[in-house]
Design a protein around this nucleic acid. Structure first.
Length: 955
RNA sequence: GCAGGGGUCGCCAAGCCUGGUCAACGGCGCUGGGUUUAGGUCCCAGUCCUUUAGAGGUUCGUGGGUUCAAAUCCCACCCCCUGCACCA
């Protein structure tokens, strides 16, 4: 561990001293610009960051070894609420917050500083950079910066970005529904909620049920408007207060607490007046679709604050309604105390309107009875409702009672019906949270339309079209990610781009607002170009103005003129512009899949809007989440999301401190690939060090001879395959597979090689180990550099050339021969273990009978022309024909198995390979070995000999 | 609800897009053996069932279908996971 740490520090400082990753434009040299979303620095980097980063890191270093000029810049994200919130909580002395910070290693004395959000930013900028440096990543730190006004030129850049979008008409003002807390007077985000984390906004349909007695409409709210044909009564909560209000010119009755929603959702509301329930209970309302009269009765299951506090009852298809009705029927006092005639209740019968296989005409009744539900407050009702709704939505068909809507699927009817009812003013829409939402302050939330919000007009068809085009031209890793992006573009609507609080850049056209956090992180990759000059002091803040950005990024204007007007040196201006033209568009952005349907897609939109096509992004890599896996007592592996609460939260520093950089790197690189979630198994990590040890001792091996044997040629030939595979894996950012093909598989080859060479090593080994070390260098750079130096090579292995396939090193004869030998050895192993398991002694003598010549003719015929015409073709050969039954039987066995693999083989090759391998086989099985032709031998096993399968006699 | 992704031999997990070479890569666990011998590491073999010679049988969520041939293609069904926006 100590030596390893020493090695890592040594190479990290050597890379630094050589400025190895601080890359500048070299005109004419191919480049590779990779980046990954700058981390939000409200804490230390965790394994999820590390996982995404390592995909990019391996790729960057691979591209460097492929001769590219590379660029990986790094930034820090601080825009938005969380850091401000953290500082506020620290300032308030919030013990949870302070303890959380202390737990993540922040010294107590820092707490005073942490009352200022900018100090938090500074602190975690430092830890983040340190972590990265300890990990040994190929970052050009000269270009680092943090968002927000801590980097004034960056803020100016964002202003430029938004003035551009604004002037293009892509920033618009509109109102928008949000889940809203009337007490805090602000939208409640997921983290601001006591209850209802998963709530979405859904459309409830409000149906106008006219109540003649009071000349107003009851407006039950429902998600299943199609069941209007089965309404038998209306429920109101007997203990709630109801009001009459004039909404959009119509008098409606709703619960008092819900009346406010209409106004908040941009309806006109006047004349709110209370109404006594006595005026309603026992009276009738008229179903707008059927004109039937339905009675108004009490239901205590109703949530008076939900939707309108008015519920229509469909006992045939809604378990709650059915259960309530049954309860009322059995308990007269429940209605009689409100002056309702119980006889009226007894008369109510469910009305069926949906037909569904596997249920009676009243699915709600079926389910209520089956689940043994009793009463309107039975907790099982939730599941019952879900079940019935789901079944009916999926398989239900409407009955004749629905009139012109009959015979259709429930889903179809719903859309049609709502459209019709809205047109006929029989219904209206009210937006509601899909479940109860309670703000942290304890107040029940509802949906409000926020007015005059600034939006990015992602719904714009022309803008979308550009993005589709962009996606089409891009490469995605893994390929299936492309579809995810297309879907996101399909789905994305206008999106708010400003906030009222938090850190960030004020909107240039309306400084009351701050550019929202996902909106100032979409084209910042272009800012890295300028950032270098800002950091070195040559680009002054006063030059961060629109005309200069226009010149750099869009090529507008004239350098001399700009220089004269603003005092910026003409050469500097031209250099920056050339830099941008050289590096942009970037070649790869690597990120987690959680960013696909927001950040990454917005990034595409912004590039499409602002930059000309030649600067569009070239590729995106998307990876899964990182789970922490652990073993249960019975050896099952269970994966858990990393979370601080579960106590399995791991920072990169945790791993680095325990295992060092290379092992941390290989842990992350082999944890997974593609969009599937990756798994880190903390208990397994220590064993990864054996890989490093193996590589090192392989590199240190000096007992190597110069004799080029057949098996050396075989190994060198096989390595060409491994090189190609590894290149493919790197090119497609499959790091786990890359390590597999570069290390595990090659080691397997070397194992066979040393066995075959009776424990000695030769030129094949020497060649293979160099290839291996180079191939793993992008993943384990510290170890690789150390070995490179140990071998006395010049320069860094990081900038040496990645192995390439050398065609002339491919030796198919050697490969086929070894494959054949391997098969024979496998057969021998099987046979011997089978026999010894039956109590026989291991053989002391092995005789191998190589198939007679004529069978090879049949084999070759089958291999080259397939088995369909096999018999016909071979029988034209007189020699084969003369073998009669034996020939037919071999041909038939080939036909049965299908065409043999495309491996040519000859009698001579088999004889040669086996004879040469006699010492090897003897050693393997500790027995005397003889190789004989089957032709002319009379041992019965000689007769079963066929090509690639000699007859085996064990004595 | 809408959208996306899945269900593989104890566990994790390849393969499926481009059907056959798949009883099905690899890792873990387990069993036996070796090294060591206090363990761990490390190495070898085995790990669906049957089988006294390299073989056969039954498997890849369930049920059908296409095909000479399906884990792989088509249809239906069951189950699971993820996202759904003003949050970074």
């Amino acid at each position: 561990m100590n030596r390893q740490l020493e090695i890592e520090k040594k190479w990290q400082s050597k890379w630094n001293e050589a400025h190895l990753f601080e890359r500048d434009r070299i005109d004419g040299m191919p480049k590779f610009f990779g980046n990954f979303p700058f981390p939000y620095i409200n804490g230390k980097l965790h394994l999820g960051h590390g996982y995404s980063m390592m995909k990019l890191e391996a790729t960057i270093r691979y591209q460097l070894m492929k001769g590219k000029n590379i660029l990986w810049p790094f930034g820090f994200h601080a825009t938005g609420e969380p850091i401000v919130g953290m500082a506020k909580r620290v300032a308030e002395g919030d013990s949870n917050q302070i303890r959380a910070l202390e737990l993540s290693g922040i010294p107590k004395e820092k707490m005073e500083e942490f009352k200022d959000p900018y100090n938090i930013v500074r602190y975690f900028m430092k830890t983040t950079e340190d972590t990265c440096r300890n990990l040994g990543v190929a970052v050009d730190w000269r270009r680092k910066f943090v968002t927000t006004q801590l980097t004034p030129t960056f803020s100016k850049f964002i202003e430029w970005q938004y003035r551009k979008l604004h002037s293009m008409g892509y920033v618009v003002q509109a109102s928008h529904p949000v889940i809203y807390c009337p007490s805090c007077k602000s939208p409640t985000g997921e983290h601001d909620r006591l209850e209802g984390d998963d709530a979405r906004i859904v459309d409830f349909v409000l149906l106008y049920f006219y109540v003649p007695d009071v000349d107003a409409y009851l407006v039950p709210a429902t998600l299943r408007p199609e069941t209007v044909f089965g309404v038998t009564n209306i429920f109101l909560h007997p203990d709630a207060t109801y009001v009459v209000a004039n909404v959009d010119g119509k008098k409606v009755i709703v619960s008092e607490s819900t009346a406010v929603k209409f106004k908040e959702q941009e309806h006109e509301v006047t004349d709110i007046a209370p109404i006594d329930l006595k005026e309603l209970f026992g009276k009738y309302a008229i179903n707008p679709m059927t004109e039937e009269k339905v009675i108004i009765i009490p239901g205590t299951f109703i949530d008076p604050d939900g939707a309108t506090g008015v519920v229509m009852s469909v006992p045939a298809h809604a378990p709650v309604d059915y259960a309530t009705l049954m309860e009322l029927k059995e308990n007269p006092e429940l209605v009689e105390k409100y002056g309702i005639d119980h006889e009226e209740i007894k008369k109510i019968e469910p009305i069926s309107l949906i037909e569904i296989q596997g249920f009676s005409e009243f699915p709600a009744k079926d389910v209520v009875e089956e689940m043994g539900i009793r009463g309107q407050k039975d907790p099982k009702l939730k599941d019952a409702t879900k079940l019935v709704y789901r079944k009916e939505a999926m398989h239900g068909v409407t009955k004749a009672i629905t009139g012109k809507y009959q015979g259709k699927s429930v889903e179809e009817v719903k859309d049609l019906l709502v459209k019709d009812m809205l047109e006929e003013h029989k219904a209206m829409i009210l937006k509601e949270p899909s479940e109860i939402v309670v703000c942290r302050c304890g107040t029940r939330n509802y949906v409000k339309f926020l007015e005059n919000q600034w939006f990015l007009k992602f719904s714009d068809p022309e803008w979308k079209a550009k993005v589709y085009k962009m996606i089409d031209k891009m490469t995605f890793y893994p390929p299936e990610a492309k579809n995810a992006f297309i879907r996101t573009v399909d789905w994305v609507e206008n999106r708010a781009c400003v906030r009222q609080s938090g850190l960030g850049t004020p909107a240039p056209w309306d400084p009351e607002w701050i550019i929202e956090t996902l909106s100032d992180s979409v084209i910042y990759m272009a800012y890295y170009i300028v950032s270098k000059y800002v950091n070195e002091g040559s680009f002054k803040e006063e030059w961060a103005i629109d005309p200069i950005f226009d010149y750099i990024y869009l090529g507008k204007g004239n350098a001399r003129k700009l220089s004269k007007e603003h005092g910026i040196p003409e050469k500097l201006l031209k250099d920056i512009k050339k830099d941008f033209q050289y590096w942009y568009g970037f070649d790869l952005r690597s990120s987690g899949k959680d960013l696909v349907n927001n950040h990454l897609t917005f990034m595409l939109f912004h590039h499409a809007a602002i930059f000309p096509e030649k600067y569009w992004p070239k590729a995106i890599h998307v990876n899964g989440y990182v789970n922490v896996a652990k073993k249960t007592a019975d050896n099952k592996i269970i994966e858990e999301k990393m979370s601080k609460r579960k106590g399995n939260f791991k920072t990169l520093d945790d791993l680095l401190e325990t295992f060092g950089a290379d092992i941390t790197r290989i842990t992350l690189l082999t944890a997974g690939e593609g969009m599937e979630d990756a798994a880190i198994m903390p208990d397994e990590i220590p064993s990864y060090s054996k890989w490093l040890n193996t590589l090192m001792s392989m590199a240190e091996e000096t007992d190597i001879d110069d004799e080029m044997q057949q098996i050396d040629r075989w190994l060198i030939s096989k390595m060409q395959d491994q090189i190609q595979k590894t290149i493919d894996n790197y090119e497609n950012i499959r790091t786990r597979s890359a390590f597999q093909s570069a290390y595990h598989e090659t080691l397997h080859l070397i194992k066979w090689y040393t066995n075959r060479r009776n424990g000695t090593k030769g030129p094949g080994f020497k060649y293979a180990r160099e290839v291996i070390i180079k191939m793993i260098a992008p993943m384990l750079p510290h170890l690789a550099e150390e070995i490179w130096e140990m071998w006395g090579r010049k320069g860094f292995i990081a900038t040496s050339h990645f192995p390439h396939v050398e065609k002339d090193k491919i030796d198919l004869d050697a490969e086929y021969g070894e494959k054949y030998l391997g098969e024979v050895v496998d057969d021998l192993k099987n046979l011997i273990s089978f026999l010894t398991s039956r109590g026989n002694d291991p053989p002391s003598e092995i005789v191998l009978y190589v198939s007679p010549q004529w069978k090879y003719k049949i084999y070759e015929e089958a291999r080259t022309n397939g088995t369909k015409t096999l018999l016909k073709n071979i029988m034209q050969d007189p020699e084969i024909k003369s073998k009669g039954k034996a020939a037919v039987s071999y041909a038939q066995s080939l036909m049965k198995k299908g065409a043999p693999p495309d491996i040519p083989i000859s009698y001579e090759t088999e004889m040669k390979v086996l004879e040469e391998a006699i010492p090897f086989i003897e050693k393997q099985f500790n027995a005397k070995v003889a190789v004989k032709p089957a032709e002319g031998a009379d041992h019965p096993k000689a007769k079963v000999a066929v090509p690639r399968r000699p007859g085996i006699v064990l004595n």
